[in-house]
Measured scan of single mutants.
Amino acid sequence: MDPFVVLVLCLSCLLLLSIWRQSSGRGKLPPGPTPLPVIGNILQIDIKDVSKSLTNLSKIYGPVFTLYFGLERMVVLHGYEVVKEALIDLGEEFSGRGHFPLAERANRGFGIVFSNGKRWKEIRRFSLMTLRNFGMGKRSIEDRVQEEARCLVEELRKTKASPCDPTFILGCAPCNVICSIIFQKRFDYKDQQFLNLMEKLNENIRIVSTPWIQICNNFPTIIDYFPGTHNKLLKNLAFMESDILEKVKEHQESMDINNPRDFIDCFLIKMEKEKQNQQSEFTIENLVITAADLLGAGTETTSTTLRYALLLLLKHPEVTAKVQEEIERVIGRNRSPCMQDRGHMPYTDAVVHEVQRYIDLIPTSLPHAVTCDVKFRNYLIPKGTTILTSLTSVLHDNKEFPNPEMFDPRHFLDEGGNFKKSNYFMPFSAGKRICVGEGLARMELFLFLTFILQNFNLKSLIDPKDLDTTPVVNGFASVPPFYQLCFIPV
């Protein structure tokens, strides 16, 4: 058959498939802009700032609406009420993970971030239990974070109060905490193996944040037939998995079943207990991918939040002064901060919360999916439909947070200066898919920041009023603009 005829037939089939998918069930789905064949609503979305586009569309179609990214149908949730109703009140029905062709290629359905069903539930339950087990290797997770915080302070001392970009050092600290939990080992910041790991993690975040990856996920045929950065992403992930597998083999040879040292040991012990169960989800494949998931999810998000926190503290020296006064009063100079201190430091706690609220790190979270046909607000959402959640619409709700575009710790303080919780605080998402490392991340943010401010004054290279804190939105995360500062020993 003539190649031209084959091409026309293929394009015609794709067009018909697109029209059929977009028209099927439209009477039951939430409203939304009319999609174009094949490309859907992509032309109506700013790929570099999806969150802003969703906010604009919500003003037209309401808090629940339908979009098509290519052939992929998505239902968008915008605003606290619908997000709570879906992710919390109907948590089980909305607990699936959205379709990610690239991740599915890399992870093969294993791990904790992109798995679904029984596998996801069992691996998540085990990971939560293990991360909360403060007795691994007779050292609590808090001990590990405190140790890394001391190392971080010593690295900052080496800058000798000269101007520096904190990106690298602030990236090393949370990565080392995860390494300590998974591998029972922290690395020197100049260790070549550690630097290679950091390089792969950072490069992957840069790649994932590009519009090209959005295109690959919406048109998965590209993955096999086109060159691009997605190939580098898959190569980096394969490198990390190979490295983790080597460490798993080392653990198998040296493990003491009665004295687990780290996450890998705990997983291997669980595998041993379930070795007679042919349906067990505790396999080497799941261990390797879960460890890679924890490394990827637990490094860049925390380091970016820390980097943004220091920029905001530079911009608002009056806030920094209040935090340091609270540190001096509650902790002093002669001991290290600990998590028990947080309950006695409402202002510092409010500042950490406000940093996370203000920066809105992951504006749309990772997409969910419905696990069955769901009736939601008089609409029928078919099983498997991807759910896109606007966390921006919750964290920047102007009824809950007056002047949401302003950095103001009073958003989390009552009139008496006591810490005030808010149900709208969802930087880790909400419901059954809430970030498994939430507790660890909150511990790291509090301890790293208090250790830094206990030991250093922060000095800006320019007038604080002239510092730009506008986030650089890159399609996946909101990151701070480049800046330098000086760490002046107190």
Rank of each mutant, 00 (worst) to 15 (best):
E203P: 05
L295H: 01
Q484P: 05
E85Y: 06
F226R: 04
M136S: 13
S115N: 06
S140A: 08
P367T: 06
V351K: 00
I488L: 13
A161C: 13
K190M: 14
L380I: 09
P3T: 13
M345R: 00
L395H: 10
L268N: 01
S51E: 04
A106F: 15
L71R: 15
G439S: 13
Q356V: 08
T159S: 11
A106E: 04
M271Q: 07
V83T: 06
P346T: 06
R105V: 08
I215L: 14
F183N: 07
C216P: 05
G439W: 08
L287E: 00
E148L: 00
F451P: 04
L152V: 08
Q252K: 12
I182W: 00
W20Q: 07
E325H: 13
L11N: 05
I141V: 13
E199C: 14
L306A: 04
R261A: 05
N259A: 10
K273T: 13
L295Q: 04
T392F: 04
L268S: 03
L467R: 05
A238P: 04
C13H: 00
H99T: 13
P63A: 06
F401I: 02
C164K: 06
L11S: 11
T290P: 00
V6N: 05
S280T: 13
N418M: 12
V319A: 09
N133V: 07
V50G: 03
I181C: 14
G137S: 13
I123L: 13
R307I: 10
P101M: 09
G417M: 11
L458Q: 03
D188F: 06
D468I: 15
E104Y: 08
D2N: 09
I362F: 12
G96E: 08
F476M: 14
E318L: 10
E325Q: 15
I39G: 05
E444H: 04
L313S: 03
P163S: 09
F239E: 14
P166M: 03
E415G: 12
Q324I: 12
I182M: 12
L449P: 02
E325N: 12
C164E: 06
Y379W: 11
Q192P: 10
D341I: 04
E154G: 10
L361Q: 06
Q252H: 11
Q146S: 14
P37A: 04
N217T: 10
R105N: 05
R150N: 09
H316K: 07
M271F: 15
I327L: 08
L310V: 08
P227N: 07
A106M: 11
A321P: 03
E93M: 10
L361E: 02
H99M: 12
D262F: 00
S162M: 14
D46L: 03
F401R: 02
N378V: 02
P30K: 00
N286P: 02
R139H: 14
G296W: 15
E274R: 06
K383E: 06
K190Y: 10
E318W: 12
D397E: 05
P227S: 10
N107Y: 09
F219P: 04
T392C: 05
P31Q: 05
F419T: 05
R157P: 00
L102H: 06
M255F: 12
L14F: 08
I257R: 11
P346I: 04
E354N: 01
G111T: 03
R377Q: 11
K459R: 13
L366N: 02
V113P: 03
I359Y: 02
R333H: 11
R377A: 06
G431N: 01
M74D: 00
V351P: 00
T450N: 06
N398P: 14
P211L: 12
S18A: 14
Q279R: 10
I178R: 03
N176A: 04
C10E: 00
P363L: 01
D349A: 08
L197S: 01
G296S: 11
S422Y: 02
F267L: 02
N218R: 15
V352H: 01
P471I: 15
T66L: 07
G117Q: 07
C179L: 10
I223V: 08
N107G: 11
Y424A: 08
I331L: 08
E444K: 05
G171S: 14
R357N: 01
T159E: 07
K420R: 13
L87T: 03
K315G: 00
Y308H: 06
A291I: 14
K160P: 06
S254A: 09
S140D: 09
S127M: 15
I331A: 04
C164N: 08
C372E: 11
G111H: 04
L29V: 08
G343D: 15
R124I: 00
L54R: 02
Y225V: 12
E81W: 06
G439N: 09
G40D: 02
T305E: 02
V436M: 12
K200D: 06
F187I: 04
G384M: 04
K432G: 10
S280N: 11
N258L: 10
E281V: 13
I60S: 15
K420N: 07
L366G: 03
T34L: 10
E438F: 06
P367L: 05
L295W: 04
L67R: 00
I362M: 13
L458W: 03
L11P: 00
R307S: 11
N286E: 04
K121M: 11
L294G: 01
L237H: 15
D89L: 08
T348W: 02
P101N: 08
K375L: 10
F114A: 12
L485Y: 05
C13F: 15
G135I: 14
V330D: 02
R125P: 05
K421W: 09
K399H: 13
I359V: 08
N107V: 11
E328C: 12
S95Q: 11
T389C: 15
E250S: 10
T364G: 08
I112V: 12
Q324T: 10
T301K: 15
N398C: 15
V64K: 00
E142T: 06
G62N: 01
L287V: 05
G79E: 02
G25W: 08
T55K: 13
N398A: 12
G384C: 05
L15G: 10
M136T: 13
D256A: 07
P382H: 04
R97L: 04
L306M: 10
F168A: 13
D49N: 09
S23Q: 13
K315L: 04
F168M: 14
A369R: 14
E285T: 10
G40L: 00
I39M: 08
K275Q: 15
R125A: 13
V370E: 00
K121Y: 08
K84R: 13
T385N: 03
F448S: 03
S460Q: 05
L237E: 05
K118H: 09
L294W: 04
S336K: 12
M255P: 04
N418L: 11
P317A: 07
L197R: 05
L15S: 12
L201I: 10
I284L: 14
G79Y: 00
V352M: 10
S390C: 06
N286H: 08
N176E: 02
R307G: 06
R144F: 12
F376H: 01
